[in-house]
Amino acid sequence: MSHVLDFLLTREGFSVRLARDGREALRAIAEEDPCEVVILDVMMPFASGIQVVRSLRQTPGWSDVPVIMVSGKGAESDVVSALEAGASDYLTKPFRPREFVARVRAQIVRSRAAANGSALARDGVA
């Protein structure tokens, strides 16, 4: 699936970094600079998407990065536990490619607006 997401996002002009499993994702969070949005599968080898999002929310610099979970598990409890763990959005498979790209864009826009808002507040602009 990562290949398709990579293709769709690259085509839209995004620069994409891929982690092959949960362990690699955790390493990227610990060692690399934050990105604008993180897409996670719930079921990954070595560390689940839920574990990764929890770790991400506790890592300085990454804690405000929007996370979109993509999973075949669409039960109410799965969605709730992902959102409670800190995911910003949840997309169940099968999904529509254009809808996926639109959700990524929406998360980035929201995240940038929030960052601008907090920068303005920090500078004392009401």
């Binding site: 398709v4 075949g72 498979k93 099968p94 999904f95 529509r96 490619p97 254009r98």
Partner: peptide
């Protein structure tokens, strides 16, 4: 495999 995780016009 593509069919299983995608839906819609694609």
């Amino acid at each position: 495999y593509y069919h299983e995780f995608l839906r819609g016009e694609c």
